[in-house]
Amino acid sequence: MKKLGLLLSLLLLTGCNIAVLEPKSETASDQAFLIVFSFWLMMIVVLTVFVLFVRFVYKYRYTDNKKDFMPKDVKGNKKLEATWIILPILLLAVLAVPTIAITYEQSPVAGDQSDHEGTHIYVTAQQFSWTFEHETGKEVQNDLVIPEGESIILHLNSKDVIHSFWVPHLGGKVDVLPGEELVYVIENPEIGTYQGKCAEYCGIQHAKMTFEANVVSIEDYERYVNED
């Protein structure tokens, strides 16, 4: 198990092909930071437990010369118990600070509570496809084109059941609800082509409800939304 833990951290360091940890937008970078930060904080806990566990189990295992040994009953130890109440609370407090900061910035909100400036995209999900409408009125299916470096303001609506909009490289995800518009902002995406998918189980072809997200330069975007 220890080896596996090591393996994971190596993978995290090299970041081989792990979409979520190769952020291509500011939003996703913040999220990746939180993931890595919480991971290392938690590794402290894992290592502490593993070391104590291995040590205790090995040291106090049954051997033949302990056959008649009767261990002393230890009912508890106030100081030790206080230690493992207080230290975890401190550890969690450290984790809570960036959590709260980024959560306040990024949480999706209902449509009428949003006053963000930027490029607006109207996303409509239905079983089993995505429709993206741009500010010029251009509508495209399963192909999202957005400009780099902007604030992309997604207005999400569903025609039928609940879906979830997710582009791992750009951040996410946010549920797409019927009857209620949610707004989610992706800040500062970088040029590239990324996979997008539906992340909330929505019926028979849920697995196939994918789309492509293309981040292009601002000029290309202007040209794109104005051509038919």
């Binding site: 999220q31 959590t99 996410g172 946010v174």
Partner: peptide
Amino acid sequence: IPSFVMGGVTGVMLSVSAANFQFHD
């Protein structure tokens, strides 16, 4: 004990709500 702790710490990672946007589902 060790297996559950491994599950427990990913639980804490999941509780980080902004990171959870990525982890969720």
